[in-house]
Simulated assay, not measured.
Amino acid sequence: MASIDPADYVEAQDDSKSLRFGDEKQQAKFELGVCMAIYKWEELETAVVNSWGGPKSSEKRDWISGITIDLFESKVVDVALIEETLLYAMFDEFETQVDNDSALYIADLIIKIYRQVSAQDYKLVDELYEKWQAKQNSKQAHDAVNINPDPQNPDSSDDESDNMEDVPALTEGVKNIDVAEPQGPIVDDDGFELVQKKGKQRRN
């Protein structure tokens, strides 16, 4: 990792009191870039996947993206401020103390994103978004493969437990299937009861 200057900052130009972009496309690209940077933070991803923040861990990650974007409503933002915001949010929302420089790296990335978007250069944002999309598609494909039973070990309890979360989706398509009602004895024209070959009859 290249050396990062925590004091590096961006400042609103002219008489602007905010770093917010006046152009809607620029602002949208910047907000997307911040979200992609936050999603790139592996420590936060681990916290979300393991629900360290409770059942709404994913929503908390989006909230962190929101408060980071809000920092740029002020006139000056530096790397250290973003890093501090990320670390406090992780501690408060996920009860996780991050003791490496990962938050510093994400903070520096967000400053880089701001500078490039300010120059109407969206290459970095688009690359981050494409990588995120590829990761999501790969994850969905992996989950789809896991739904299929293992032909070598169809009764594996591990497979059953791993796919429990997929049960509602799998059963969705069978809700409207008509189930035949049990039939009584079948009698022919001569009054003889016919033996039914399929199914088991319960004896009274």
Rank of each mutant, 00 (worst) to 15 (best):
Ala47Gln: 05
Glu172Trp: 12
Leu71Asn: 04
Asp121Asn: 13
Val76Pro: 03
Gln136His: 10
Asp108Glu: 08
Gln201Tyr: 02
Asp159Lys: 03
Thr171Asn: 10
Gln27Val: 07
Ala144Pro: 02
Gln140Cys: 05
Leu104Trp: 03
Glu172Gln: 08
Ile177Leu: 15
Gln196Glu: 13
Pro154Trp: 11
Ile106Tyr: 00
Asn137Ile: 04
Met164Val: 03
Val77Thr: 06
Asp15Gly: 05
Val174Leu: 08
Gln183Trp: 00
Val145Ala: 08
Pro149Gly: 12
Val10Cys: 01
Tyr39Ser: 13
Gln140Tyr: 15
Glu93Asp: 12
Ile113Thr: 02
Gly33Asp: 05
Tyr114Thr: 01
Phe30Trp: 11
Arg61Gly: 12
Val48Ser: 10
Val179Asp: 05
Val77Cys: 08
Ile113Ser: 02
Lys135Tyr: 03
Asp126Leu: 13
Ser51Gln: 14
Lys135Gln: 09
Glu24Thr: 07
Pro185Ser: 10
Phe192Val: 00
Glu31Trp: 10
Val34Ser: 08
Gln116Cys: 02
Leu104Cys: 06
Ala12Ile: 08
Ile111Pro: 01
Asp189Met: 08
Glu181Tyr: 07
Thr46Ile: 11
Arg202Thr: 11
Pro185Glu: 06
Leu128Pro: 01
Val10Ile: 15
Ala134Ser: 11
Gly184Lys: 05
Val79Lys: 12
Gly66Ile: 02
Ala47Lys: 04
Asn146Pro: 01
Val79Gln: 12
Lys75Trp: 12
Ala169Ile: 03
Gln196Ile: 03
His142Glu: 15
Asn137Met: 15
Asp166Leu: 01
Ile106Asn: 04
Lys198His: 09
Arg202Glu: 09
Gln27Pro: 11
Tyr88Ala: 12
Ser156Trp: 07
Leu124Glu: 03
Asn163Ile: 07
Val145Cys: 04
Asp158Lys: 07
Trp52Cys: 10
Glu43His: 15
Lys135Phe: 02
Ala169Gln: 12
Pro149Leu: 10
Ser57His: 00
Ile106Glu: 00
Ser51Val: 04
Glu84Pro: 04
Lys198Ile: 14
Leu128His: 03
Gly53Gln: 05
Lys123Thr: 06
Ala2Ile: 01
Leu19Ile: 01
Glu24Ile: 06
Glu59His: 13
Asn176Asp: 15
Ala37Pro: 06
Asp101Val: 07
Trp52His: 14
Asp166Cys: 08
Lys197Ala: 10
Pro168Phe: 00
Tyr39Pro: 01
Trp132Tyr: 11
Glu127Lys: 09
Asp14Ser: 15
Val117Asn: 04
Leu32Phe: 13
Ile106Lys: 01
Glu84Trp: 06
Val187Gln: 06
Glu73His: 15
Gln116Tyr: 04
Met90Gly: 10
Gly173Ile: 09
Asn176Met: 04
Phe72Asp: 03
Lys123Asp: 00
Trp52Glu: 13
Pro185Trp: 09
Asn204Gln: 13
Pro185Met: 07
Asn146Lys: 12
Ser138Gln: 06
Pro151Ser: 09
Ala107Lys: 00
Arg202Asp: 09
Met90Gln: 10
Leu194Phe: 10
Val117Ser: 01
Gln140Ser: 13
Ser65Gly: 15
Lys131Ser: 03
Asp190Cys: 02
Ser3His: 04
Leu194Asn: 02
Asp188Glu: 00
Tyr105His: 11
Ser156Phe: 08
Ile67Leu: 11
Asp15Phe: 09
Gln116Thr: 00
Val145Ile: 08
Asp70Ser: 14
Ala12Asn: 06
Asn148Ser: 13
Ala134Asp: 13
Gln133Val: 03
Asp166Phe: 13
Ala37Gln: 00
Lys175Pro: 01
